[in-house]
Computed example of a mutant assay.
Amino acid sequence: IGESSASVSLAQLIQTADLTQVNASEEDKIKAVMIQSCLQYDPINYMKKLPESYTCFHCGQPGPHIRNCPTVGDRNFEPVPRIKESTGIPRSFLTEVEDPSTKGAMVTQTGTCAIPVINAEAYGKGKKEKPPFLPEEPSSCSSDDPVPEELLCPICKEIMTDAAVIPCCGNSYCDECIRTALLESEARTCLTCHQTDVSPDALVANRFLRQ
């Protein structure tokens, strides 16, 4: 745009590429430059255009995006149920159904309705819940089964707790049982081999029995 006697409006300045050749005030030129520098970042340049076949997911009618749907926020309006597509699921994993309202139904590429095989089996079995306060079933293992002797402490005759090995003879006891027995003995005598001066600090954890 060449120089002219009439001053150019701000709207015309924004559309002008070379502002140095325009008859306008410096303030208007600066405003035009600032606006031009922001035009490429306008959100309209990044908004995806809706296809002509677009249908609103809320009301099921062709037209504006769901954000602009007039039925959004209307408590008396019941949204149209949306059927998912079976994209990514192999056909061998699907079972066709006639009723689109079937629970878990999806639309296939051929336009038919189907549900995953694993879902069909789950829906067929149904969810089983135990009623509350039902007495527990007895355990399959009997409490009368004998406990192996190698798991019993020679002192308390119970299943060893925190099994520990005494270094003199290699026998295992409950850590608390053998430690107490050594501390109560004046000569620190082993109960099995009767060796004296056995320190409680010399006890070694028997990790195999503990496991």
Results as ranks from 00 to 15, higher is better:
residue 208 F to R: 08
residue 189 T to N: 10
residue 204 V to H: 02
residue 97 V to T: 03
residue 120 A to D: 10
residue 169 C to F: 09
residue 158 E to Q: 12
residue 195 Q to L: 03
residue 135 P to V: 04
residue 208 F to N: 03
residue 88 G to D: 05
residue 153 C to F: 02
residue 159 I to N: 02
residue 136 E to F: 03
residue 102 T to S: 11
residue 161 T to I: 10
residue 155 I to P: 04
residue 173 Y to L: 02
residue 149 E to M: 06
residue 102 T to W: 00
residue 133 F to G: 00
residue 196 T to L: 02
residue 87 T to V: 15
residue 121 E to W: 11
residue 104 G to V: 03
residue 104 G to H: 09
residue 119 N to Q: 15
residue 107 V to S: 10
residue 89 I to F: 04
residue 86 S to N: 10
residue 202 A to W: 14
residue 175 D to G: 13
residue 91 R to N: 10
residue 172 S to R: 06
residue 117 V to N: 14
residue 147 V to R: 11
residue 205 A to W: 01
residue 100 P to V: 03
residue 132 P to F: 09
residue 168 C to S: 14
residue 161 T to W: 01
residue 130 K to V: 08
residue 130 K to C: 09
residue 182 L to T: 07
residue 142 S to N: 11
residue 193 C to D: 10
residue 96 E to D: 06
residue 184 E to M: 12
residue 86 S to V: 01
residue 91 R to Y: 03
residue 134 L to G: 00
residue 207 R to H: 11
residue 152 L to M: 11
residue 137 E to F: 07
residue 182 L to M: 07
residue 94 L to Q: 05
residue 194 H to L: 15
residue 96 E to P: 01
residue 158 E to F: 01
residue 145 D to I: 15
residue 172 S to W: 01
residue 169 C to Q: 08
residue 197 D to W: 03
residue 94 L to I: 04
residue 188 R to D: 01
residue 185 S to Q: 05
residue 185 S to K: 08
residue 120 A to F: 05
residue 109 Q to F: 06
residue 83 I to P: 01
residue 120 A to W: 06
residue 152 L to K: 13
residue 91 R to S: 12
residue 90 P to T: 01
residue 143 S to D: 13
residue 136 E to T: 11
residue 204 V to F: 04
residue 201 D to R: 13
residue 204 V to I: 15
residue 126 G to T: 03
residue 84 K to I: 01
residue 180 T to S: 15
residue 164 A to S: 15
residue 167 P to M: 05
residue 195 Q to N: 08
residue 142 S to G: 00
residue 155 I to N: 05
residue 116 P to D: 02
residue 111 G to C: 01
residue 162 D to R: 12
residue 187 A to L: 14
residue 85 E to V: 10
residue 102 T to A: 12
residue 157 K to S: 07
residue 163 A to F: 02
residue 134 L to E: 14
residue 84 K to E: 14
residue 114 A to C: 08
residue 190 C to L: 09
residue 199 S to E: 15
residue 137 E to T: 06
residue 138 P to M: 09
residue 181 A to W: 14
residue 92 S to Q: 11
residue 126 G to M: 08
residue 163 A to V: 00
residue 126 G to S: 05
residue 158 E to A: 11
residue 138 P to V: 04
residue 126 G to P: 02
residue 195 Q to W: 00
residue 114 A to K: 09
residue 91 R to K: 12
residue 105 A to V: 04
residue 182 L to N: 05
residue 105 A to N: 04
residue 92 S to M: 06
residue 154 P to R: 06
residue 148 P to G: 01
residue 195 Q to G: 05
residue 156 C to T: 06
residue 178 I to M: 15
residue 131 P to I: 03
residue 192 T to I: 15
residue 90 P to W: 03
residue 161 T to F: 06
residue 131 P to R: 10
residue 135 P to T: 04
residue 95 T to P: 00
residue 120 A to I: 00
residue 106 M to W: 00
residue 88 G to E: 02
residue 105 A to P: 05
residue 206 N to R: 06
residue 166 I to Q: 08
residue 206 N to E: 03
residue 128 K to P: 00
residue 146 P to R: 12
residue 188 R to L: 12
residue 161 T to D: 13
residue 128 K to T: 12
residue 188 R to W: 02
residue 178 I to W: 10
residue 186 E to W: 07
residue 166 I to V: 15
residue 168 C to A: 09
residue 199 S to K: 13
residue 126 G to Y: 07
residue 202 A to G: 05
residue 99 D to E: 10
residue 174 C to K: 05
residue 90 P to D: 00
residue 202 A to C: 09
residue 115 I to V: 15
residue 196 T to R: 12
residue 91 R to I: 09
residue 162 D to E: 14
residue 200 P to T: 03
residue 133 F to N: 15
